[in-house]
């Protein structure tokens, strides 16, 4: 299985995806949480609006992204916007070079999951005692310094949980990839995360259960190793955290 270039490729695809999506979601949802926490007017409105996409199914979102926002014709939303600036239509999902399909996949996932992690951060932020901020203000700290020395350290437990959840979510990458990129039973040879690849090998037309389960075992081992390493690095479960 490890000699299969397509499987190795799928692991690379996943790695690239995780390296990008985990920090990006982390930063965006933390940013959104900070902004919402600071808002005095209509805070609950913004909170709900950002959280709403979480309630949407990955499949439905994937199809909306594929068929209406990023469809290749002029009337697709993205192409219509480009049209105002006189730019030619781009067939987002058909091109392999440049890989515009990543834009579609990543934006769909960001839209779906940012709201949820924002809520987690928001809860964390609201638990930070205001006295800390008051003390900092008296000491003359403001802006970035407050964030760096008070908010971020106080959010340590939340951040750890969010990172772990994000990584698990990234490992589970299947729904939006499958629904955005597959066409009529076939899937292009790129942007194939391990689950999609194994789906086609074992459950799909291949019906190759031997290789499928071998791949699943490898994947499980990788997830276990990553989880252990991450636990070590973030000192998960330490007393006093």
């Amino acid at each position: 299985m490890l000699r299969d270039p397509a499987f190795r490729n799928s692991l690379l695809t996943f790695l690239a995806f995780a390296v990008f999506i985990v920090p990006t979601t982390f930063v965006i949802s933390l940013g959104a949480a900070l902004l919402v926490a600071r808002t005095r007017v209509m805070q609950s409105f913004f909170r709900s609006v950002f959280f709403l996409p979480t309630a949407c199914s990955y499949v439905v979102a994937a199809l909306v992204w594929k068929m209406s926002i990023f469809s290749g014709i002029r009337s697709g939303l993205a192409n219509a916007v480009l049209g105002w600036f006189g730019i030619d239509s781009i067939p987002w999902l058909s091109l392999a070079e440049p890989p515009w399909y990543w834009l579609v996949i990543v934006t769909a996932r960001l839209w779906l999951q940012v709201g949820f992690y924002m809520i987690l951060f928001l809860a964390g932020i609201q638990r930070i005692s205001p006295t800390l901020y008051e003390a900092a203000a008296i000491d003359g700290a403001e802006g970035w310094k407050v964030f760096r020395h008070i908010t971020l350290p106080q959010l340590r437990a939340t951040s750890t949980a969010v990172l772990l959840l994000l990584l698990i979510n990234a490992f589970q990458a299947f729904d939006e990839f499958y629904n955005i990129l597959s066409t009529f039973g076939t899937y292009p040879p790129y942007a194939r995360p391990p689950l999609v690849y194994l789906y086609y090998t074992a459950l799909g037309s291949g019906q190759d259960f031997g290789h499928g389960s071998a791949g699943a075992v490898i994947l499980t081992l990788i997830i276990a190793i990553v989880a252990v390493v991450q636990g070590r690095i973030l000192r998960l479960g330490d007393r006093g955290d």
Binding site: M67, S68, F70, S71, G72, I73, G76, S89, P91, W92, L93, S94, L95, T183, F184
Partner: peptide
């Protein structure tokens, strides 16, 4: 070639 039509060739 037409690419990215909302509904595919079928």
């Amino acid at each position: 070639l037409l690419l990215g039509a909302p509904k595919d060739w079928f």
